[in-house]
Design a binder for these strands. Structure first.
Lengths: 197, 197
DNA sequence: TGCGAAAACTAATATAATTAGTTAAAATTG
DNA sequence: CAATTTTAACTAATTATATTAGTTTTCGCA
């Protein structure tokens, strides 16, 4: 063998992402990761503090990538169109990187600064997209929460194979998003969506 | 100590549920469970086949309990009212039994007959609630998927402490549900919710 | 009362993460 | 360019957990 394998945090993260995406986050272990990188497990500790730190870093990377996808999708679009685009981008990220996405919702430390900042940037992006509707600030936040729930819920269920029937899943998704967009319009017209509850 | 601790599967499941609800599903281990039950870890193997089977049973119990809550909420109600009630029940179950709910979406074996049947009964219940709207069968399924996404997404995010801001979470929830109900009305009127996508 | 099944136990094994302590390669500097 | 310092690998040992094997105790019942 010529020279020692050059190992660094970004290479480790990349391989960890591959494992998580291909075999599931729960299959990601120090042992398997070391094996794929052709080093002994303890070697990884020269670069990071253990499995938890690794998962935390994956989570951060996942949220950042999510933001990236959504940002890309949002440029040059506005209103309903932009909402559809960022929703589609969200779903696409989860489909392409199921393990990474999973990591981004099952992190060891919720108080991590960098993680919170990354999450916040996603929220801000959505708020920005909603700007054009001139909603009340409070209303806008409720709507961000709603959209986030929809996107996380739908993609999680799809990932776990929860939609059993053969009926077209993409159609379910676009109906759901369009339904929600209708709801935003209603909020614009100041319809009272809290009645009866 | 008088007599030997009477142990059986239902007692084990009950204690496991407590642990999962109080400390999180990931903290549930054979060791901790045995300790709480005041037996040695291997004793548990007389009643079940290991941690995976335990988690599988928890998953099934979780889905059944979810169905139970939703069924209770649905009796004597119909239409929009029934949808609000079952949604509320869903959220209530997750709040009361976060660990059990978590188990019900992170099971070891998705092909388990009993699990699938329990899941199916939840779907059937929702379809039954939707009956009164006289939707096309396909449409009804899309809507069940949508509602499920909303409920799972919202409660998961709430559980992981994902709604950072102090803004009233219950209000976000009822707005989301009401928005969705509006969408169902639109589907009733045969509005095309697939356009532009 | 004593037998057989059920259900506990102890002891041993396996797998994973992690830590301690060591060594070798690479980078830096006089 | 040789000596030294640093980095990052290694081996060996420790800890934590789940699990299995084999044994013993308890309980219900004939």
């Amino acid at each position: 063998m010529s020279r020692r394998m050059k190992l660094d945090v970004s290479i480790i993260l990349q391989k960890a992402t591959e494992i998580a995406d291909e075999q599931g986050l729960d299959q990601l272990s120090i042992g398997l990761l070391a094996e794929k990188l052709e080093v002994r497990p303890p070697s990884l500790y020269n670069h990071l503090d253990g499995l938890n730190e690794l998962k935390q870093k994956l989570a951060i990377q996942g949220v950042k990538k999510l933001h990236e996808y959504m940002l890309q999708a949002a440029v040059g679009r506005s209103g309903d169109d932009a909402i559809r685009a960022i929703s589609q981008a969200y779903l696409q990220l989860v489909r392409e990187h199921p393990g990474l996405y999973d990591a981004s919702s099952r992190f060891p430390d919720a108080n991590d600064q960098e993680l919170q900042q990354a999450q916040e940037s996603v929220v801000q992006l959505v708020l920005q997209v909603l700007d054009v509707y001139h909603l009340q600030e409070e209303t806008a936040i409720h709507i961000v929460r709603g959209l986030r729930s929809i996107l996380h819920g739908f993609s999680s269920i799809e990932q776990m194979g929860g939609f059993g029937l053969p009926l077209d899943i993409n159609k379910s998704f676009s109906i759901l998003i369009n339904t929600f967009i209708e709801g935003i319009h209603a909020a614009t017209k100041n319809q009272n969506l809290e009645m009866n509850n």
